[in-house]
């Protein structure tokens, strides 16, 4: 079934690989510095260097970050890793669960106030967060959700929801209406058609949206540090950020931690690569 391979002129092939290699170098180079720093023991002489490679490679920074350098540290680290995972997964789940029906309605159903809702949603993206942090805190306090993972999840989910709605609305618009109609003729209610037909068809987009929500929660630390007040409840970015002190920072451990924190995201990226690409097909935002 695959179409015959088009013959690619040699210069096109060389050209594309040159472009890609250059771009990859650009993309990877600063990360290499982070990696190099993560594997460096402190005390390396600062030299004007171009090739990022540690003078004396060591795993000490990683050990310190995961708490292997003191008793009970590793267990704490695992707990905090667990927190991060739970909070991020729950954020992804909540964001998707809330955003999906809404984006379905926005994509498919006519309703009074739709234009206004879309505009408002887009407008929320324009408002710098500097203004809303304190009111949010007060709100969570009234909901008795301070210092609870569920409160954090709520906060993260709300920041993730507008983007998720845009994302999913675009994706659902690309799914043929025929499918739902077929289901409804087959005996489905609209809701059944949504659950049994639209959701499976939108799965790649949902996966990608979930990934974005996961990422935004996974990397955040200011709100987490403000809302959480127990060490065992901390998420990893708070731990990571604690290596940057007022006067002096332990950049080696910070870098090692950054790599460890990024690793799950990288793995997820790798897994959903394909979906990522088709899922963003119509990241449709209409103001």
């Amino acid at each position: 079934m695959s179409p015959p391979k088009e013959r690619v002129p040699l210069w096109v092939s060389i050209g594309s690989h040159t472009v890609l290699a250059a771009a990859t170098l650009f993309a990877v180079y600063p990360v290499l510095w982070v990696i190099s720093l993560a594997f460096s023991a402190g005390g390396d002489a600062p030299e004007p260097r171009v090739v990022p490679f540690p003078a004396h490679p060591t795993l000490e920074n990683f050990k310190q970050f995961v708490g292997l350098d003191h008793a009970g540290g590793f267990a704490l680290f695992l707990g905090q890793l667990g927190n991060s995972l739970i909070v991020s997964l729950a954020t992804a789940l909540v964001a998707v669960v809330i955003a999906t029906p809404a984006s379905y309605a926005l994509a498919r159903l006519p309703f009074f106030g739709k234009e206004g809702a879309l505009r408002t949603l887009f407008a929320t993206q324009m408002f710098p967060a500097v203004a809303s942090a304190v009111p949010l805190y007060v709100l969570l306090e009234h909901l008795h959700l301070l210092d609870a993972r569920s409160g954090l999840v709520l906060v993260y989910a709300t920041t993730a929801i507008p983007f998720a709605i845009f994302q999913l609305k675009g994706a659902i618009e690309t799914i043929p209406v025929d499918l739902e109609e077929a289901a409804m003729v087959d005996g489905a209610t609209r809701f059944q058609a949504f659950v049994k037909v639209v959701l499976p068809a939108a799965r790649p987009a949902i996966a990608v949206t979930a990934l974005f929500a996961f990422m935004s929660a996974w990397n955040e630390f200011i709100l987490a540090a403000t809302l959480l007040s127990r060490k065992s409840a901390f998420t990893l970015p708070i731990v990571l950020q604690s290596y940057v002190g007022e006067h002096l920072a332990n950049w080696g451990v910070f870098a090692a931690g950054a790599l460890l924190v990024s690793a799950p995201v990288m793995i997820l990226f790798y897994i959903v690569q394909r979906q990522l690409i088709s899922g963003l097909t119509a990241g449709g935002v209409k103001g």
Partner: peptide, 25 residues
Amino acid sequence: TAYAYVTHAAIIVALLVVAPLVAGA
């Protein structure tokens, strides 16, 4: 029909996104 799908999201967004923004503003 549509409101059945958007109401919960509208309430949450209004309460947790829009209201803090307005209060901040």
